[in-house]
Amino acid sequence: MINSEQKLKFSPLHRLQWEEAQQKYVILYPEGMVELNQSSAEILKLCDGNHTLPELVAELEAKFATSGLTTDISNFLTVALQNGWIQYA
């Protein structure tokens, strides 16, 4: 579960990068790479040390003119936290 009070940031031990050849965002780390779909990349880009989970949800819901994203985003961030891609700021 993600703590809604705390801001999230991307791990300094990983790198999030746009790959022109693959036309997608990837996470790079020692000897490995994860390819991201569009929505995962959008979520991770907001893990910049300035957003908590609710803030991040609000921003994405506004951006994509939709609602009810909390569960999906929270689930994805839980996985991201477990994998060490993000941290609490």
């Binding site: 990068q17 790959e19 050849a21 693959q22 990837v26 790079l28 000897e31 490995g32 790479m33």
Partner: peptide
């Protein structure tokens, strides 16, 4: 050249 083709690691 390799980067242009898509090598990243």
């Amino acid at each position: 050249e390799a980067r242009k083709m898509g090598a990243v690691q």
